[in-house]
């Protein structure tokens, strides 16, 4: 599944990020890489969403969220 399909309040693990180089590097610099735990805080239906990773909240655009592959954390 992709991040945009995440459900509010649940925590996921990042599997992969497929987005243009520049943007991917920016996300990485902010600490969003493979295996990062990411919590969805507010996933509004149409547009951007609020997530939290590495201790900070971020607003992410829909296109970014659609290109981040995630898996539910089962533990």
């Amino acid at each position: 599944m992709v991040l945009k399909q995440g459900i509010d309040g649940r925590t996921y693990r990042v599997l992969s990020i497929h987005i243009e180089f520049q943007l991917e590097r920016r996300l990485e610099a902010l600490g969003l890489t493979r295996d990062t735990r990411i919590t969805v805080l507010n996933n509004r239906k149409r547009g951007s969403l609020i997530v939290k990773f590495r201790g900070t909240r971020f607003a992410l655009g829909k296109r970014i969220a659609n290109h981040i592959e995630i898996a539910e954390v089962t533990e």
Binding site: L27, S48, T56, R57, F58, A59, L60, G61, R63
Partner: peptide, 11 residues
């Protein structure tokens, strides 16, 4: 639209 918003939301 780019839909590529990326902004920190401070506490």
């Amino acid at each position: 639209s780019e839909q590529a918003l990326l902004i920190e939301l401070p506490e």
